[in-house]
Amino acid sequence: MLEYAFMQRALIGGLLVSIIAPFMGTFIVVRRMSLIGDSLSHVALSGIVLAALFGIEPIYGAVVITVIAAYFIFFLRENYASYEEISLAIIMSSGIALASVLMGFSKNIRGNFLSYLFGSITGISNQDIYIMIVLSFIIFAFWGVNYYKLFHMAFDEESAKAMGIKTDKLGKIFIILIALCVVVSMRIVGVLLISSMMVIPVAAAMQYSLSFKQTILTSIVIAVFSVIGGITLSFYFDLASGGTIVLISVVILVASIMLKGRR
């Protein structure tokens, strides 16, 4: 299957997703923000439709709209500080509402829309891959500099702030990076399934991992296995790549829970 250029692109993109999504996901899960990926991915849909309306690459529209949505989350969180999930619910429904209204103006997006919802390995262009590589580089560079600060923040935000870490600023950048991670992942797993790639491998890894680094590495291994397995199966059996990838990771999660229960 590797003789096909689209499969080469799918595997490069898939590998990027399977490293970045669980890496971000480990911090998302321990900070109890699992819904945020879902919220931002629903907003990405409206960015895709908007880009199609203006005749530009959908991935650009998704980047702009998800980053704007990230800022909107900051705004809502400040106004509903005690009810953080409210901001995520508002963003999620606003994203879907905007996408559905915009779709009324663009008839030609509809056929392509399913591939964005559930992922499609044949739909990944060279342009998509270049942008995914650039966004992944930005995410890795940020983590390289701030890994320990975010670790401290995730464990005990008050202590981190008291000891001089700029937790407010880092927290905001973290949400913007989740928005970028959503864009990186959307062509492979589809916007409806992105958050599962951030959460399911981590949930499976947490069953066995002793340390934080082990959790990150194990979740990446699970995600790589799921993504490569999912892309391969979707190539040979003509399945939706996103659904196949997520189902494989769910099987791994269930197996890990059952095996732990038998110990």
């Binding site: 995730a154 991992s209 959790t215």
Partner: peptide
């Protein structure tokens, strides 16, 4: 966050 998947040593070192 007591469900945090980290060892005591990792926690102190990372802080």
């Amino acid at each position: 966050n007591l469900s945090f998947p980290a060892t005591v040593n990792e926690l102190i070192y990372s802080s």
